[in-house]
């Protein structure tokens, strides 16, 4: 479930990156972040499948809920990392302008 949620996040961000008008939102970094995690969880899933076989596809509801909650938390953490970097690098100069005004 964590892998699935991260892959969906990676696909959505990649589509947003492809249809972007300029690079000011720095979506490329977020794409790599989610794809990196997705690839690593895919390897984890392959090893788990090799161990559990068919049982891997029938997880307990409690485990599935916990994994889904973890997946959403991972997506949120990725977004926070991206946002902090965006605010620090400030490619549009919005923060600089706002600070100078104040």
């Amino acid at each position: 479930m964590t892998l699935l949620i991260t892959v969906f996040a990676a696909v959505i961000v990649t589509v947003k990156w492809y249809t972007r008008k300029d690079d000011s939102m720095q979506l490329g970094m977020l794409c790599f972040l989610y794809w990196g995690a997705s690839i690593m969880w895919l390897v984890d899933a392959i090893f788990e499948y090799a161990e559990l076989r068919a049982e891997y596809f029938t997880p307990a509801i409690e485990d599935m809920l916990n994994d889904a909650f973890l997946g959403l938390s991972v997506v949120a953490l990725g977004l926070v990392i991206w946002l902090v970097r965006l605010l620090i690098t400030d490619p549009k100069g919005s923060i600089r302008t706002a600070l100078k005004k104040g």
């Binding site: 964590t2 991260t6 490329g28 972040l33 990196g36 995690a37 690593m40 969880w41 973890l70 990725g78």
Partner: peptide
């Protein structure tokens, strides 16, 4: 730089899973 983003991204998000 692409490779560092992939590796750091994966490592940080997986580290979070391990903390979880």
């Amino acid at each position: 730089k692409w490779l560092t983003y992939l590796l750091w991204g994966g490592a940080v998000l997986l580290a979070f899973e391990h903390i979880w």
